[in-house]
Write a protein that binds this DNA or RNA. Sequence first.
DNA 1: CTGAAAGCGCTTACAG
DNA 2: CTGAAAGCGCTTACAG
Lengths: 352, 352
Amino acid sequence: MRSKDIAKLVGVSRSTVSRVINNYPDIPPATREKVLKAIEEYNYVPNVPARRLAGMKSRTLGLFLLDIIEEEKPHHLKISNENLVYNNNFFAAFTNAFIDQANKKDYYILVSIIYNMEDFKKAQDAFYGKRIDAGVFIGGKTQEYKYIFNVIQPDYIIGIVDFEPEDLSRQKAVFVNMNDYEGAFKAVEYLITLGHRRIGIITGDLSKGSGVRRLRGYKDVLSQYNLEPDPKMIVCGNYVEESGFNGMNQLLAGPHRPTAVFCCNDSMAIGAYRAINEAGLNIPNDISLIGFDNTQVSEYLSPPLTTVHVPLSEIAVNMADLLIESIAKGKQVAINKLVDTVIVKRASCKKL
Amino acid sequence: MRSKDIAKLVGVSRSTVSRVINNYPDIPPATREKVLKAIEEYNYVPNVPARRLAGMKSRTLGLFLLDIIEEEKPHHLKISNENLVYNNNFFAAFTNAFIDQANKKDYYILVSIIYNMEDFKKAQDAFYGKRIDAGVFIGGKTQEYKYIFNVIQPDYIIGIVDFEPEDLSRQKAVFVNMNDYEGAFKAVEYLITLGHRRIGIITGDLSKGSGVRRLRGYKDVLSQYNLEPDPKMIVCGNYVEESGFNGMNQLLAGPHRPTAVFCCNDSMAIGAYRAINEAGLNIPNDISLIGFDNTQVSEYLSPPLTTVHVPLSEIAVNMADLLIESIAKGKQVAINKLVDTVIVKRASCKKL
DNA sequence: CTGAAAGCGCTTACAG
DNA sequence: CTGAAAGCGCTTACAG
């Protein structure tokens, strides 16, 4: 079924059929209805590639999930597929809301996972091959994000989550970030409010913007409350459970262990739980713990984890809207939007 | 940059450029290389819609996630986006592996979420508008799946997860199912092996194929071991946490409570944990529990949940391969493929 | 081995 | 208000 067939059926030209489909004014209601009826009856759907070729947009947004592990082989070469990026609730919440919001505005979503620098070719092909009208990148490290500007020409519309542009006039894109700094600040401030003075941190991946900003929040709140920083209280993690386990063991090993620890994400907090349990200590009686992300699991830990909720769906909705706005305007909207976090108080923190 | 530009640059015709791109034989290596070099140098990517229009495939697979709630408003009208289908690890693991496998074979993925019967229009549009070469549906109830055959003409290639066709010669599609029956059978058999005789079940959604098959496995193993079935031991759930909570309360309320319960998925097991804790009982000392799905959370419950692992990535890989095979052959492969489960033993079951 | 040309199914100035 | 026609960027018989 082509527009030509509908035209013949109704007794008008393809031009008229096209005008009805595209809501041109000045079509007499009677004609419009006849055409619409035939379209309905025969389940006619215009050929999208043909429309695209004739100059229309494809109404598709790209979603590129970065899951680049430098030191190792790409994830998908591992034996098990079960622990990939997608199992990470962090992505799932964003992905879901992004698809949803785009669908509402009549856009489709093309998803790809980028496992290594070479895979950026997939994103480039999607843009350059005119599969998508715009695309968003999420999950990358600062260096990886910078690379995007080399791979994707500035005449394509892009969005990035978790990257703070140095110069919005040069790095043009829709940037939507969660307010990591404020979230970390509030998290540690909460521990201080509970009476904690010796507060440790297991940092996130410091090659990601969020890792750096959360650490900065931690440092700043301590200095604001005149608590002297102790380098022994700062251990480096990388957002992975194992690094939380190791980090907590390191914090527990010292002669003067912290009474509370800020884990820069929930996965590391899970590792920290394990370390604390294995050391025969109790949460929150011996040590209080606060996480970041409010992943699904955090609520089911025992005790349930106090954590910083990241409104990923809000980030996703903003991102979809701003990308679609860019497409409508025909030019990249350049903006750096910040979304606030909120603390979810559960049982893993104790008042001293 | 169009093929015409590359042609001019190299000094050949567009036909030749096209032949190089499409790996035609009989191109002299020198010509091939010159063309390839220009393509590389100018980052030329052929216009996908134009290729599609000229008769090639779009190399895109549709992924339709069904999340239809009959009684209520569609999920996305709720205030919070956080608990949608995508947060469900069940989907996430499939989705990830499916994207991954398709990407490996040089296919892109178009995802949409279907919240109500009207949303099937999104899937229809994707097929009829030639956005995709094939598409898979997951997460639906038996009735919803049947509707697909009305909405999508049989000349399009489709796949369905969790639907047992009545007649493969009439309902042509790639069906990949986990072996729910065998999984349930093994789960309950394991409880019997541990010495349990009075075994309850909180069923899944019985409007889904998996719900029916898991219940059947439960019944059959009991009869095979000559344990008389007790209708009081069978309570209906719907795969949602709350129904596990209610179901367990119902099982605990009776005069003669079960020593073990088979929860037909992990979400309901979580609800059951809560009911048991609130009743002041202990898992596994007072009651043993086994789940189904092996979701990420199951491992972090206390005690960690014994459950049936569903190899979703294997299902996804099979589905992607069979869909792509269908596309290559130019006709729907009709097959009903079963994937086996495996029990993951953790601390929630006790030997009597 | 290779170019000129038709054709894929649309949209949209253009002319009336 | 509406039709004929050009053009979007490819691929692929066709002819040589």
